[in-house]
Design a protein around this nucleic acid. Structure first.
Length: 213
DNA sequence: CGCCAGGGCCTCA
DNA sequence: TGAGGCCATGGC
């Protein structure tokens, strides 16, 4: 079923080419973006990333040395800016002690554990970093994933993050490219049809969804 | 104007 | 572990 839905999404929406990057330090930019986009629309995040990029701040040492309040002002558009400024500092502290080239050598489990130690990085942000920055296979679960697949009837919406993730891991190949594309397609589908107020009549997978049966 | 957006922490039970 | 409050901007 999961593969069928994936095929339908891919056919209808096409390849997504997710996680746009503007600067010359894509991994760090994705790590920052994953934090900045927490419960925030990507549009608001883009402005914040541009600010950081223009000020040459996609750089571990520079984030560590800049004043926290000043950093907060630069990322203001992304919302929760005081919290997120601290989070950027904390993740840079981790990256100072464990450079990206070192982290790349770790297996997914160890990498995830390290990331989750950073206050302000939870499961979804950690997994986004692992999948999109490090290109290692882990399925990213977000609010859209739960919404779509609980409406379809494949999972309960009360399921914990880890359980939902386990469901996908159990039923899909352990493939970073697949996980990357699937998550991007899920976001696309949630925006187009499976919104808070869903457009079920026109939905491209309504035949598979218990909501319309 | 209210709602929501590519969450996570803290507190309290 | 789970529910509720809090963090905050900007687009619609």
């Amino acid at each position: 079923m999961l593969e069928e839905i994936y095929s339908t999404f891919l056919e209808k929406y096409g390849k997504q080419e997710w996680w746009p990057v503007i600067g010359d330090n894509p991994k760090l930019e994705i790590i920052f973006g994953a934090i900045l986009t927490q419960n925030t629309s990507w549009k608001n995040v883009e402005k914040a990333i541009s600010q950081l990029s223009e000020n040459k701040l996609i750089d571990v040492d520079k984030i560590l040395s800049i004043d926290t309040d000043e950093l907060a002002q630069l990322i203001k558009s992304s919302g929760y800016y005081n919290q997120k400024a601290k989070k950027l500092k904390r993740v840079c502290k981790l990256l100072k002690e464990n450079p990206i080239e070192e982290l790349e050598k770790l297996d997914v489990k160890r990498l995830r554990k390290l990331l989750l130690k950073v206050k302000g990085i939870g499961p979804e942000t950690a997994d986004s970093i692992i999948l999109y920055a490090f290109e290692k296979p882990i399925f990213v679960v977000d609010a859209y994933t739960k919404r779509i697949f609980s409406r379809i009837g494949l999972i309960s919406k009360a399921l914990s993050y880890e359980k939902v993730q386990g469901f996908f891991h159990d039923n899909l190949d352990n493939n970073a490219v697949l996980f990357n594309e699937y998550h991007a397609l899920i976001v696309q589908h949630a925006k187009q049809y499976c919104r808070t107020k869903p457009l079920c009549k026109e939905c491209i997978i309504k035949e598979k969804c218990k909501r319309l049966l």
